[in-house]
Structures are given as C-alpha cells and as structure tokens.
C-alpha cells in the first residue's frame, strides 16, 4: 500500500509537504499579498495596504522581499500629480502561490489522515 500522495507505484516516497513550503512565500502577510495580487492584473500599493490592514513601512518591507525573489513587479507612475505605485504578480509569483496552497492542503490532509488512523488503532 502506498502512502497518500506518494505518486506512481515504484516511484520513491514523495517529500513531506512541509519540506515543500517556501520560506519567502509561507510568511502569513506575504501569503496575503500574493493572494490579493493573484486576483487582479495590477493593484495599487494603497489598496493592498488597506486590504491587509498594514502600515506603509510594514508592507514595503514584505514587498521588497517578494520583489527580490522575483515574485512581483512594481511600476511607479502618476495619477494627476499624485505618485502611485502599481504592483503585479509575476508568473513565478503565481506559480509560487499555487505551490504553497497545494502544499498546505496536502499537509492538512496528510496530518488528518494520520491522526484518524492513530485514533482507529
């Protein structure tokens, strides 16, 4: 009998979902940033800050980390005379979010299956 999610028979055991979690993405605020940005083509800095209830400085710190990892792009411009910053997820950012959510779902299902088996035995 193979373990849940262990892949095709004969293949080696799949890595534990916890090992797939990416430190850059896994942080709660950064997961929130990626989630909000995944729904829009572009999102204004202020809109993202309000949506997540963060301060400018806090949001900036997380954005820098995500930008350095190549997960998002920023574009600066003007609306009238007001400077605005637009944020956009990169392809890698979308893939990283998908991978993180899948890993979390697998983790939950794996732990719950193991707990249920323990309770039965």
């Amino acid at each position: 009998m193979t373990e849940a999610g262990s892949g095709a028979p004969g293949a080696g055991p799949s890595p534990h979902p916890a090992t797939v979690l990416d430190d850059v993405v896994h942080q709660r605020v950064r997961l929130g940033i990626l989630t909000v940005l995944s729904e829009a083509t572009e999102c204004r800095f202020a809109a993202l800050r309000d949506e997540l209830g963060l301060t400018d400085g806090n949001l900036n710190r997380h954005l820098r980390i995500l930008e350095q990892a190549g997960l998002l792009q920023t574009t600066k411009g003007y609306e009238g005379r007001r400077p605005v910053t637009w944020l956009r997820l990169t392809r890698a950012g979308r893939a990283a979010l998908r991978a993180e959510v899948t890993a979390l779902e697998q983790l939950v299902s794996r732990i719950r299956t193991a707990t249920a088996a323990d309770e039965e035995s």
Partner: peptide
C-alpha cells in the same frame, strides 16, 4: 491559514 486565504481571495 487556508480558510483565511480563501476569505481574502473572495474579498479581493
């Protein structure tokens, strides 16, 4: 976390 993300995604 997954539930919070789902809510956030729906709002966004």
């Amino acid at each position: 976390t997954l539930a919070a993300l789902k809510q956030l995604r729906e709002r966004a």
